[in-house]
Amino acid sequence: MFLKPKTKRNREIAFIWMLLLPALMVYLFYRIIPLLWNFVLSFSFWSPGKPFEYAGLYHYEEMLFYDDAFWTALKNTAVFMLATPISIAIALGLALLVDQKIRGRSLYRTLIFLPYPMMVVAVGIVWRWLYNDSVGLINYVLRSLGLIDQPIAFLESYSFAMASVMVAAIWQIVGFFMIILLTGLQNIPAHLYEAAVIDGARAHHRFWRITLPLLRPSIFLCVILGVIASFTSFDLIYTMTGGGPGLATELLITYIYKASFTLSRFDYAAAVTIVMFFLFLTLATVANRLAGGDAGKVDIAD
């Protein structure tokens, strides 16, 4: 079909494929092939320099029945994902605030959005400093206010490490969510609120009955992006805690990294990756289904 573009339609199709091709190639080489390779690898024994051998479900059995670290990482990932609903709630609050006719609202919008484009590694380093027990700003402020006597080593503490990392993650993504929700808010016609005001709906009725339902697609877009971000927050964890102390902040993604590059267990890491992939796929599908299959779309009748 590419080679004999006889009709106009064929030529058009060939042209479309030509334009798609570079993107498809990237997708193929960096997404599809590694995924398939992972799939094969997860059913094999292999590490660099060793021969390839069929392993069946060996790695999956080990992971599910013998590896406590995997379960810890899975549980931590679930906890870490709570950052998404929290971020969305905060972002919605901020979006409602900066959507008001207040002085300097575009400045607030910019300030809140600013962390998002920052490099995650940089965010991690800044927050590591903020949390530091001897020179960190947070400890300094808490001590100056007399709230604590002893400095807290947030990132080295079993009780605080996870929460601390989540705060940083939330801080970074909130601005992005706010922009998505703000766009959603501004797509809701003002007349709907006016009609509701005359109909007798008070502010909280309008929020629950009009704003929230009409923001649903935007909210679920945030959910999906948040789920992706929490599965892939490798950089943040790696720079802030490296998964520690112990396994306190170990997520699936950092665990996969360690299995591969610290322990050279590429085959086992591949099996964990496959599990993570399907978990992620399920969550994204569910979120999209809940959004009515149109996450990100604006649900306004013309």
Partner: peptide, 30 residues
């Protein structure tokens, strides 16, 4: 809400996520 007036807008301002019934029932609920 306390003026007891009803208004019809040029673009109708129907609530897009509600059925016709719910649109009409909206004000009565409040």
């Amino acid at each position: 809400r306390d003026r007891d007036v009803a208004m019809v807008f040029q673009d109708y301002a129907l609530y897009p996520h509600m059925s016709v019934f719910e649109n009409m029932a909206f004000s009565l609920r409040y």
